[in-house]
């Protein structure tokens, strides 16, 4: 699931950066597209992380799933940026752990 996590990470980071850089209402198109990607990919990751349950990964995937609709409904900029940062950091942490596990020669449950 590294590919999906990477997609979520990129989408969340893009949303957070766009919220910090672009003006409203131009930023809404970016929020909308990133939000849809986060919702769809985050849903898949949430199910993947739920069975069997891996709490840290599950929480970060759920954060992506929730951040998606939040971005679509045109929130205040600060909320959008915060949601993007939370989702991006969560995926970054899980991805880092997965890559470290692979390097150590073990199969991470997070992958």
């Amino acid at each position: 699931m590294i590919a999906l996590r990477t997609v979520c990470l990129v989408a969340a980071a893009t949303a957070a950066t766009a919220g910090a850089v672009l003006e409203r209402p131009g930023v809404f198109a970016m929020f909308g597209s990133c939000g849809l990607v986060l919702f769809v990919c985050g849903s898949g990751l949430t199910v993947s992380d739920a069975i069997p349950c891996r709490r840290g990964a599950f929480a970060s995937s759920l954060a992506c799933t929730v951040a998606g609709p939040l971005l679509v409904v045109r929130p205040p900029t600060v909320v959008a940026v915060a949601a993007g940062i939370v989702a991006a950091l969560g995926q970054l942490a899980v991805l880092g752990a997965a890559i470290r596990s692979r390097s150590a020669g073990t199969t991470s449950a997070a992958t």
Binding site: M1, L4, L36, F39, V40, S43, G44, L45, S48
Partner: peptide, 18 residues
Amino acid sequence: LRRALVAVTMFAAVLVVA
């Protein structure tokens, strides 16, 4: 199976969005 489950879930999410 896990990949299939993820794919089905993502498809369901796309349907929800639609």
